[in-house]
Amino acid sequence: MLMNLWIKFTKENYLKYISHLDLMRMFQRTFRRCNVPIKYSQGFNPQPRMTIGNPLALGIESSEEFMEIELYKKMPVDEFINTVNKELPQGIKILDAKYVDSKSSISSFIDWSYYEMQFVVNNIIDLTSLKISFQKLLEKDKLTIEKEKRKGNKITIQEKDVRPFIGNLTISEEKSEKISGNKYLITINCLLKSGDKGNLKPTDLLKVIEKYADLDIDSDTVEIKRLRIYSEIENRIEPLM
């Protein structure tokens, strides 16, 4: 019996401001309104069986998020998508869903995320030179950033090499432009490791390029959107669905 449903959905516009837990609660209530036959956990405090693979940080949009829910009774996929979409708030929309036959959770299939990031940089000569500094950056064996580690009340700062977590980094020239002088609006795309086997936050990538490409990024202007999520299978990356 295929009772595990994988769901692909968006989290866009202002809905980027609701947290992972808010999103879970929102889906739980939406599913109840739609009479989705969701299964509950056993025990003292039964919870609906649902997981969001690789939750997003607050403030990041996404055109492709994944969730897995377990049902006790099969509901046709089309019916599921149509009913639930009618109840979802503007900004969250189910794009696709499928029943899967897998014992491992959806999180274990997530290896890479592809992001688009937009921000204003105050110290760029021109786009070509920026491109070159990105190439040089990717040629390095090691790219370290400082990471805070908390242990109880103690905070220690550690150097962490994140080069293995960066799959790709490019400038999207059609979405980048000069504002004035050395001030540019820059749009980049990057493929970053995501999930249980290694994870790099997009904001940490910004730290990397600030450091190694010597960029003065205006942090108030940063917009981040996750475009795709990928699985890595035998050194190839493939969409989840």
């Binding site: 202002y14 809905l15 401001y17 209530r29 939406t30 607050l58 403030g59 108030d220 940063v222």
Partner: peptide
């Protein structure tokens, strides 16, 4: 849009609830 990035719990101000 600009100030929402700078405050805690920005969803307090967005409305749009069911």
């Amino acid at each position: 849009d600009k100030i929402l990035k700078k405050v805690e719990k920005p969803a307090r101000y967005i409305g749009m609830e069911k």
